[in-house]
Amino acid sequence: MSTSHPVIEIRALHKRFGAVHAVAGVDLAVERGELFGLIGHNGAGKSTLFKLLLGLIAPTSGDIHVEGKSLRGAAFREVRRHLGYLPENVVLYDNLNGRETLRFFADLKGVPRAQCDGVLERVGLGDAGRRRVREYSKGMRQRLGFAQALLGQPRLLFLDEPTNGLDPEGIREFYAILHALRESGVTILLTSHILSEIQQRVDRLAIMKSGRIQAVGTVQQLRESTDLPLKVSLRFARGDDGLQALLRTLPARTLRFDAGEATLQCTRQAKMEVLTALTALNGRVLDLHVREPSLEDVFLGHASEEPR
């Protein structure tokens, strides 16, 4: 990851729609080559923030700089040419085929039409390019939407719920492309409701609530910031009922103890003490597994906090 200026820089951003404060003072910086996730409940302000970042709506106040330039200034076209966007509910033109769709968007972006076939191939639609979009499945439409975002080798990608309608194989291929793009220095900002899907794949993420950024960081940093308990699952020999009394001496709460299995819950600070004690029970504890709070746990923890 580069240490140069952030690709996206947002300062004190506000957007009001009448009485609704959709974006309420957002400060955020996304570095070049980052795969950055934006998560939040419906109505948290993610889509509004996306629209502000794309220059589709004007902020009430605050600054947005993309690659150091304003989206609404003289560099408008230059910034847009290096930007790809996949909307949440991508609706393309049913009367065109896949190839014609890409050619239209390529023309609009000023990209050579010769790129279209390669991009179609890349998203797995090489054989479907001459079929009308109206015959496409939801997953194929999503792939075509992704293809138009990739036209012109963008330096910055905005992807709103990009895996909607994709099957597991499609999701895997999609993230493989994203990781390849990230390796080549493309900055990617994405939203997703499927938190388990993005927790292993994003570099950093921000949690939005009521128009504000509640927390920002790597998944691990966010876990640590919430101080959510960890769960330790262990397996022991059936009939070793004496173990339960021993577990009670640990700085952990026993959630379950039966049929040779137990689940404990402890704070992050107590984690090593608990693990050390359990490891010392070698022979009596047959197996153990530590489960960190999931991104969903972290999200729900932050989402339940009062907005900052």
Partner: peptide, 14 residues
């Protein structure tokens, strides 16, 4: 209404 307006306006077009 179809949702394609935002996509069009995200291109280098005023």
């Amino acid at each position: 209404e179809r949702g394609s307006l935002d996509l069009l306006l995200s291109y280098p077009v005023t």
